[in-house]
Design a protein around this nucleic acid. Sequence first.
DNA 1: CTATTAATTATCACTATACGATAATTTTCG
DNA 2: CGAAAATTATCGTATAGTGATAATTAATAG
Lengths: 270, 270
Amino acid sequence: MIDDSTATASDDVRPSVGRALALLDLFTVEAPSWTAERICEERRLSLPTGYRYIRELVAAGLLVRGSGGHYSLGPRIIALDYTIRQSDPLLRVAVPVMKDLVRRTGCACVISTLLGDQILDTHREAGAEPLALAYGRGRSRPMFYGAAPKVILADQPANWLHRLYDARAGEIAAAGMGDDWTPFRRGLAEIRRRGFYVSRGELEADLSAVAAPIRMAAEDTQSAVALVTASERFDLLDAAQLAALVRRGGEAIAAAMASERGDRREAPLD
Amino acid sequence: MIDDSTATASDDVRPSVGRALALLDLFTVEAPSWTAERICEERRLSLPTGYRYIRELVAAGLLVRGSGGHYSLGPRIIALDYTIRQSDPLLRVAVPVMKDLVRRTGCACVISTLLGDQILDTHREAGAEPLALAYGRGRSRPMFYGAAPKVILADQPANWLHRLYDARAGEIAAAGMGDDWTPFRRGLAEIRRRGFYVSRGELEADLSAVAAPIRMAAEDTQSAVALVTASERFDLLDAAQLAALVRRGGEAIAAAMASERGDRREAPLD
DNA sequence: CTATTAATTATCACTATACGATAATTTTCG
DNA sequence: CGAAAATTATCGTATAGTGATAATTAATAG
């Protein structure tokens, strides 16, 4: 009876800031709205403590209180995302290139970025076909499936990859990216050398994609641009030409970034 | 010399959760990237404490650590915004109506929502002209200028408005919405009766807009739909017809929401 | 690959402050 | 306007957050 089953293991030995922030995890597409009471019982918090956390999150705008004590994710999140979009020079620069790629190929065009330890789509331009993936910005992606992650990983420094491998060897093997460090690294080196990667039904069964890296000088975020289309349609296209287009797209974006030089904005120095 | 000028007054008498969350305020479009050291000196935190807060925010994904100890807003924000978008039935339902309005009028179409104590745009469909307001979702709006806020406020219950008035009488008077409770209330009642509001250059000098409420039964968020266009172009259009279109748009959205009944998702009850 | 420096975390004693049980209050809804 | 629910205040106690310093890890150069 020592086991406290359901709760996530180390939820109790975390500082209050972390516990409060962890409340955000509760709010999902499936359950976007919670009462204070349900939050407290779910997280095993006393009512006053739960309300204290909630109050802080509401004060920060991360949650809103709707009618009848129903809390949901708050406006601050929307505004912060706006800030991210506005201050991301990559988006400013990439969107025109993406539109151009869409016009030329009829495929959808996606930009994916490695942020911390996850990869997510930061912008999407819809193609001719509306595609099932018409979800838009923000869907997080598995780290080891699909074209974009592969070209992004392929561009990471060896020590970073090594840490990643040690931490997630199981997933990597399961994804067929090698059951040891050496083959993993070799595979990525090969992708890197080619400068693009074609995935066929890797992420979603009926979709194919070709991705190329956006290689920026000394930038801390690594991104990729990809063209995505139904596999059936993909077969009609000349893969080599598509790959060339995507590669040039990635290079064009990187070049445009470089020429935007000098506006890497920092916190003002007073 | 008693004045500690820059810092927000009551920053110190706040629980740690609040102080940690307040770090997010530092990250703006003007200063999207901060080192740990600068954060600490800006907020008068000791280095260990600053790092503790930062660590929690990074663990929650609200911040990312970029190369060289530069922190910026993190991927979790993008993902949370995705969750909000996905779980907002209003968006699902409104976008087609908005596209239709754009097609018919050539104007841009915006949905604004009252969330807590602020109003912000939750979706935008671009019109024929690209418009300066092509910023997209998430820009927060002044509460007392422009068409959308007016129609939203006009639909709020009297006691809510009264609290708002008491809290922000100055701003309200400055915006020409009345220098006392009675005229403020009267003005809004009139807007409510008409069912729409036309603003000409209120928010941005050369833009005009006409907004109508989206009146949903017993929903906790109040929204408005607006058509926006350059004032010059607006003068060419028949304002009465435009107003009728927007009103019908709002009604169509509300009706579609009502028929989506029964899928107000709650936290599962175990 | 190793040395040097910067960035981040651990240690630890101390005290502030977060915690829970209950009560008072405010808000919501009929 | 009154009853029920939701939220906050009170308060003693003990936890856990805090800062100064040291140790460690990661980044950068040579």
